[in-house]
Design a protein around this nucleic acid. Sequence first.
RNA 1: GGAGGAGUUCCAGAGCGGUCAAAUGGGGCAGACUGUAAAUCUGUUGCUUUACGGCUUCGAUGGUCCGAAUCCAUCCUCCUCCA
Length: 412
Amino acid sequence: MGVFEELKERGLIAQTTDEEKIRDLLNNQKTTFYIGFDPTADSLHVGHFIPIMVAAHLQRAGHTPIMLFGGGTGMVGDPTGKTDMRKMLSKEEIAHNISCFQKQMSRLVDFSDGKAIMANNADWLSNLNYIEFLRDIGVCFSVNRMLAAECYKQRLERGLSFFEMNYMVMQSYDFLELYRRFGCRLELGGDDQWSNILGGVELIRRKENEEAYGLTMSLLTNSEGKKMGKTEKGAVWLDPEKTTPFDFYQYWRNVGDADVVNCLKILTFVPMKQIEEFANLEGQQMNDAKELLAYEVTKQIHGEEEAEKARSAARAIFGKGADTDNMPSSEIAASDFTNGEIGILDLLVKTKLAPSRAEAKRLVAQGGIAVDGEKVEQPGDVLTAANFEKQDKKYIVIKKGKKVFHKIILVG
RNA sequence: GGAGGAGUUCCAGAGCGGUCAAAUGGGGCAGACUGUAAAUCUGUUGCUUUACGGCUUCGAUGGUCCGAAUCCAUCCUCCUCCA
């Protein structure tokens, strides 16, 4: 089975410009392909995961990925699928974001010995001459056709600036430029990139009289069709500073039953055979599949060690074990106490388990807070140093709701 | 350039002089049920206070009034129609 079939079986491929040609390109040849990333934030999030996984799959099959950072296009912002215009970023922000992306990506894609290429389209976009560009590239685009594209249609209802309208042209130009520089013949992207990719394919045909291809990947959605990777706190980030490995692990541990198999296919390298066995699981057994998913995904992003820690912390918390070593924790100093005690509400706020005292009080009133397994009954309850000291350990474990556990260590 | 319309709490969206911290829905959080699932039901959802209460919010700034999210003026932003 070729890598193309593997991708297809895992449900990673949404659309292709020419399935037969691409199959041949991926199964029988060494191909240089590219994927673009918009450096709009200083960390990748789950939405970027699929393209990176596909790149990793293809790289393992011997192809050469070009990871293109939109240092130039990022200064415009892709209007696709956005209801409002994006805020513009400064050059410094973009440069910073790109370096963060590179670091995170290198976990999955091997950049050693030229096995993968990093490019930044600012290299060719920044110094374009407007008149020349219009004469050379601009003539190849029909506004009528662009407006007919679904992605622009939606924006026409809400407003689309000329500025943003250029995004498609620039992305198409990227493809042409990468074809010229590296012989790149295949562009990958999210399914929402379809029309932008087609633009590039056509541009190469017109300028170089050569065939190029595009392939899009499905967006990661759950069984209800909603995008995954978002939580109440925002996106699930790949940066451990923004989303701790434990929270990251828990996110995947808690996916719905209906989504587990799909996520395993798309987000892990677990062999298809093994995944198929999970498809028949029911009830309690489903949890094994979820644990595997969470572990594998965490391992890929944060490394084996962090994945182990997250898993054993989760097992300890939700099982019977008393292992609190890897539980999310924070420290509190004796100086935070007033007259040798500290109110439960203040403690919740201080550890950020509650954003305000009012919220903390609500939690207590609704029976959502427990300290070392004992439910806190009164918002006025206080803790003293003695509460922290038992069996030589200087900490307490606070449980908020059903799933949030937090260890507070007394220091000093 | 001209003519209209709109900006409300996380989002959508009511309110149009006092009874408004502001309806309703979504989302979030908590509780029950469970498998750290889904669905469902209940409670809750500005800050502060044990509580009475106090404080800050309805694009911005001023003003009218005993009293303004609600009226007036100026400004900013967005939308629609015409050119």
